[in-house]
Computed example of a mutant assay.
Amino acid sequence: MSELFDWRIVGPPLLAGLLVLSTHVLLGREVLRRGIIFIDLAIAQIAVLGVIVAQLLGWPEGGWQTQAAALAAALMGALLLHGFERFWPRQQEALIGISFVLAASGALLLSAGSPHGAEHLQELLSGQLLWVGWRQLQWIAGLYVLILLAWNLLGYQGRRFYLLFALAVTASVQVVGVYLVFASLIIPALAIRHLPRKQGLVAGYVIGGMAYAGGLLLSSWYDWPAGPVVVWLLGVVALCAGWLATAVGMAATGRD
């Protein structure tokens, strides 16, 4: 059993999950405030489309060309969604959903002619969390530090929010996949929505950290796919946290 919980196995993916949470809890809170829930799915899927195009061109998986293709696609998607907010605010959520469907359908069409297309697409959706390496974590950590600095020092109004969002999602979607990108953004943010900013962020990080740690341990123990297990644990831990917060609030009200 000690081999299943070896830090050399669980350590890199756990650190990857914590790095993803460092930006996604913050971004998810802003996404909920703006009421654009599906922006993460749309931009993540557009980034996936960029990765698939890079693969069709024969560019090395994980190479700088593929990263550039994913980033370029995500940034174009971010500018498109910013245009929706600016020119069609009432239809924005519907247009974001349409963008996601078009990007997902485009990914399926482009993957249809590749002998390993379905396999690559599945990896991009569910992620390759258990296979992340230390070298990959270094550039992700550096990028997230820059994003957090820009977020806190320059602000996140207007177009800047979409650009920072695209940068974060481009990095995370190739590590944890589309499903975990959405779950890491929305589930903790939904659980902490009624808490003050600082307390909410701490609670969100705790919820996400517990889910990633527990999910990776279960995945190693039972040989389950890591991404889906962490998604489910995010839901369970967030639900328990919400129930606990409600119970504590009711008890405090009763004492008053």
Rank of each mutant, 00 (worst) to 15 (best):
A73S: 09
A74K: 01
L75E: 12
M76E: 11
M76V: 04
G77Q: 04
G77T: 01
L79Y: 11
L80R: 00
L81Q: 14
H82D: 15
H82I: 12
G83A: 03
G83P: 11
F87M: 11
F87H: 09
W88K: 06
P89D: 06
R90E: 12
Q92K: 03
Q92S: 09
E93R: 01
E93Y: 00
E93D: 08
A94W: 02
I96N: 04
I96A: 06
I96H: 03
I98P: 02
V101A: 08
L102S: 03
L102D: 05
A103E: 12
A104S: 00
A104Y: 08
S105Y: 12
G106N: 08
A107R: 01
L110E: 13
S111W: 15
S111L: 08
A112R: 03
G113L: 09
S114D: 15
H116P: 15
E119V: 15
H120W: 07
H120D: 06
H120Q: 06
H120V: 09
L121H: 05
L121Q: 04
L121M: 08
E123V: 13
L124C: 07
G127D: 08
G127R: 05
Q128W: 08
Q128T: 14
Q128M: 11
L129Y: 10
L130H: 13
L130F: 10
W131L: 10
V132I: 07
W134L: 04
Q136H: 14
L137R: 09
A141N: 09
L143K: 06
L143T: 13
L146K: 14
L146C: 15
L148A: 11
L149S: 11
A150M: 13
W151I: 03
N152R: 14
N152M: 14
L153N: 09
L153C: 07
L153A: 04
G155Y: 11
G158D: 05
R159F: 14
R160V: 10
R160G: 11
F161I: 00
Y162E: 11
L163M: 11
L163Q: 10
L164W: 02
F165Q: 05
A166C: 04
A166W: 02
V169M: 06
V169W: 06
T170W: 09
A171I: 04
S172N: 12
S172K: 10
V173W: 05
V173K: 03
Q174T: 08
V176A: 05
V178P: 00
V178S: 01
Y179W: 06
Y179R: 03
L180A: 00
L180I: 01
L180G: 00
L180E: 01
V181D: 04
F182D: 00
F182S: 00
F182Q: 00
A183G: 04
S184P: 03
S184V: 03
I187K: 00
L190V: 12
L190T: 13
A191T: 14
R193W: 13
H194P: 07
H194V: 01
L195N: 12
L195A: 12
P196K: 01
R197K: 07
R197W: 13
Q199K: 06
G200T: 04
G200I: 03
L201H: 11
A203Q: 14
G204K: 00
G204N: 03
Y205I: 13
Y205A: 12
I207F: 02
G208M: 09
